[in-house]
């Protein structure tokens, strides 16, 4: 036998639906009357079936469906309890007295299941929000790191360019003072820039001043030899100046041959030699 007769059932569904839909600023008023009616009917069906069968199976299904539907419309915990309280209140009023205890238990179980599901969904949403915030924070840190890296790269580029200056001291003569460690990267950079400068200025002599290179070892010597070969291919000569006694001894001990490369002790000597190659000489003039 059904818990409610047809007219009582209609009254129950109608009154609960209307109260839900009229609840101000709630998930129910946002969703509208029709979804409210659908869920109230489903809940009353489940209440009748479970009460008759003595189970709570139908209740679980409708409680989860109810929570899912209204969560999409901003369901809050007070809305959730309002639904169950209202249904309980009206069902108890309209049901036969001997069924009130069963209704009480069903509504209690409905509240427990829907609350649990609500908490799970809320927790899931919070975790998603936290993960999203983490992603935003990491992206922001990454962007800051990219900016810092760009600035550092630009600064390094500036330092590299400043560390390999090419000075056209006299027409046809370039002076390249090397300062600091002369490694493969700097050698490649210098080769590229020097060949460009020779091409543009039509220089015939390049003076490489290595007095600022602290350690002139095999690797550095090989790099200078390769640089000199490239320069010679453009028809220019290389004069190596600024060789310290220690560096000269090291080169001899290592057996590095600087054949085909003129060496001078100081920059002035190198400049004098370069002027001679250019058939030029410095004269003092009085104004």
């Amino acid at each position: 036998m059904s818990l409610f007769d047809a007219s009582t059932r209609t009254e129950l569904v109608s009154s609960v639906t209307q109260r839900l839909a009229k609840r101000r600023m709630s998930a129910f008023s946002v969703a509208g009357e029709e979804p409210c009616r659908v869920h109230v009917e489903a809940a009353v069906d489940a209440l009748e079936r479970d009460t008759e069968a003595g189970t709570a199976e139908a209740m679980r299904v409708v409680a989860v469906a109810f929570t899912n539907t209204f969560l999409a419309h901003g369901l809050g915990y007070s809305d959730l309890t309002f639904f169950t309280r209202l249904l309980r209140e009206r069902a108890r009023e309209l049901a036969p007295a001997h069924q009130r205890a069963a209704i009480e238990q069903w509504c209690y179980d409905h509240l427990v299941v829907s609350t649990t599901h609500f908490m799970v969904q809320r927790d899931d949403a919070l975790q998603r929000e936290a993960a999203q915030r983490d992603i935003e924070r990491f992206e922001s840190q990454l962007a800051e790191l990219r900016v810092a890296l760009n600035e550092k790269t630009q600064l390094l580029e500036l330092i590299r360019e400043a560390s390999t200056p090419i000075a056209p001291v006299v027409p046809g003569i370039l002076v390249v003072p090397l300062v600091g460690t002369f490694d493969r990267f700097r050698a490649e950079l210098l080769t590229e820039r020097l060949l460009d400068a020779i091409g543009q200025s039509r220089a015939r002599v390049t003076i490489l001043d290595i007095s600022g290179v602290p350690v002139f070892d095999t690797d550095a010597a090989q790099l200078v030899i390769r640089l000199a070969r490239s320069v010679r291919l453009l028809g220019a000569k290389v004069i190596l100046v600024g060789m310290s006694p220690d560096n000269a001894r090291t080169i001899v001990e290592l057996g590095v041959a600087l054949d085909g490369m003129m060496t001078c002790r100081a920059l002035q000597d190198g400049l004098r030699a370069a002027l001679a190659i250019q058939r030029l000489k410095l004269v003092s003039t009085e104004f």
Partner: peptide
């Protein structure tokens, strides 16, 4: 208390 911001507005 439980303070909830109502949906819809």
């Amino acid at each position: 208390p439980l303070v909830e911001h109502g949906p819809g507005s």
